[in-house]
Simulated scan of single mutants.
Amino acid sequence: MTTLAIPTVTEPRARFRDLVAAEWIKLWSLRSTYWVLAAGALVVTGIDVNSALTNLDWLSQRDAPAPMDPRMRFDTLSSAFVDPAWQILMVVAGSVGALAVFGEYTSGLIRTTFTAVPDRRAVMLAKAVVMTAVTATLGAFVSVTSFGVTQAILREHGGLSIGDPGALRAVVASALLVPLSALVGMAVGALVRHATGSIVTTLVTLILVPAFLQGETYRWVKELGNAMPITAWNALIENPAMDHPPAKYPETITEAWIVFAAWPVAAVIVTVLAVRRRDL
Rank of each mutant, 00 (worst) to 15 (best):
T115V: 14
L176S: 10
T252W: 06
A167N: 06
V188W: 03
L177H: 10
L109I: 13
D83H: 13
P250I: 04
S143D: 00
K222A: 14
L37P: 01
V36S: 15
T196M: 15
G139Q: 04
Q214K: 11
W24D: 00
P118K: 13
P165I: 04
D18C: 07
A152D: 08
M124I: 15
L280G: 07
A247F: 02
P12W: 03
P264H: 08
H157A: 10
A41E: 02
L177F: 15
V272N: 11
L191E: 00
M242N: 05
G148S: 14
P210H: 06
S161K: 12
G225M: 05
E156V: 05
H194C: 09
A232C: 04
E238W: 06
P246L: 09
S161W: 12
D279P: 07
R111T: 04
V200G: 09
P67H: 15
L208R: 01
L138D: 07
A116E: 03
L27M: 13
S78W: 08
A126W: 04
G215R: 02
P7D: 15
R73Y: 08
E216A: 12
V184F: 11
V117T: 14
G103L: 02
Q87R: 09
A126S: 12
V20H: 01
W24M: 01
T252R: 04
I253V: 15
Q61K: 15
I25L: 07
A41Y: 09
V130P: 02
R111Q: 06
L99T: 14
V49F: 12
A170F: 11
T76P: 00
T201D: 04
L191V: 15
R193T: 07
S198A: 11
F260L: 07
V36W: 09
W233K: 08
K127I: 03
A122E: 09
A140V: 08
A182P: 04
T132Q: 01
N226Y: 03
M186N: 10
G225Q: 11
R193N: 01
A22I: 02
E104G: 05
G185W: 01
G103D: 01
A136S: 15
A80D: 00
T106Y: 03
V192E: 03
I207V: 10
S198P: 07
Q61P: 00
T76L: 03
A241C: 04
L56Q: 13
M1H: 07
G185Y: 05
R276G: 14
L180G: 00
M228H: 02
A14Q: 13
L77D: 02
N226F: 06
P70R: 11
R277L: 10
P240E: 06
L109Y: 11
R276D: 12
P246N: 06
D48Y: 10
A167E: 08
L203Y: 15
L42R: 04
R120A: 05
A21M: 05
T106A: 13
A38F: 11
V36T: 15
D164G: 01
F16V: 07
P165A: 06
V259S: 04
T54P: 06
T76S: 03
P70K: 13
T196Q: 11
A39E: 02
L168W: 13
A100S: 14
T231Q: 14
L56D: 13
V36D: 05
V144I: 09
